[in-house]
Simulated scan of single mutants.
Amino acid sequence: MRISSAEFIKNYGSVSDKALTEAVTITRNGRERLVLLSADEYARLKRRDRYVMLAEDLPENDLAMIAETEMSAAYAHLDEELKDWKP
């Protein structure tokens, strides 16, 4: 659902009810400005956040397991895509 900020203000009750079942995009001057989500949907999305860390911060046993990992032969064709890659 997409509505203007004026419509959102005028119809807050029904729009907030609608946001319980689908995301509501609120626009201003025709451009997307905000998205209204249910608290449950927001919590679901937050659970999907990823934690990023440096390789040197990994425990030694994790580094050892990564070093011992071997790629399945089914994916050997991917090596070709990386042959000329430079960081």
Rank of each mutant, 00 (worst) to 15 (best):
D17C: 07
E41I: 06
F8E: 12
Y75C: 14
D49F: 09
I26G: 04
A55I: 11
E60A: 15
A76M: 04
E60K: 15
S72A: 11
A67S: 13
Y42M: 05
R48I: 00
E32M: 02
K18M: 11
E56I: 03
P87V: 14
A55Q: 11
S38V: 00
M1E: 11
S38Q: 06
Y75D: 15
S16W: 04
R44M: 00
A23W: 05
E22H: 04
L34Y: 01
G30Q: 08
K83A: 15
R31P: 04
D62Q: 12
E7R: 05
A43M: 06
T69F: 15
L20D: 13
Y75K: 06
L63P: 14
S38L: 01
N61C: 06
D17A: 13
R47E: 12
I26V: 07
A39D: 08
I3R: 00
L37T: 03
K10R: 11
E7F: 00
S16R: 08
Y42V: 08
S5L: 08
M53Y: 08
E22F: 01
L82M: 14
A23I: 00
R47C: 02
M65D: 15
L82R: 15
P87A: 13
D49E: 09
G13L: 11
E41C: 05
S4R: 03
A76Q: 14
R33Y: 09
S4D: 08
I9G: 05
S16L: 03
I9K: 05
R2K: 10
Y12P: 01
Y51Q: 06
K86G: 10
A64Q: 15
E41G: 03
V35P: 03
L20R: 10
S5P: 00
V35N: 01
D79V: 06
Y75I: 03
T25K: 07
M65R: 13
K83L: 13
M53N: 06
F8C: 07
E70H: 14
Y51N: 07
E70L: 03
Y12D: 06
H77D: 14
T21S: 14
I3H: 05
E56C: 06
A6C: 02
L45P: 03
E22G: 07
N29L: 08
L54A: 15
F8Y: 15
S14Q: 14
R48D: 00
L36G: 01
E68L: 13
Y42E: 07
E7T: 03
S16K: 13
R47G: 04
T27W: 01
R31G: 02
M1V: 13
G30N: 07
S16V: 10
L58F: 09
D79W: 04
I9D: 10
M1L: 12
E68N: 15
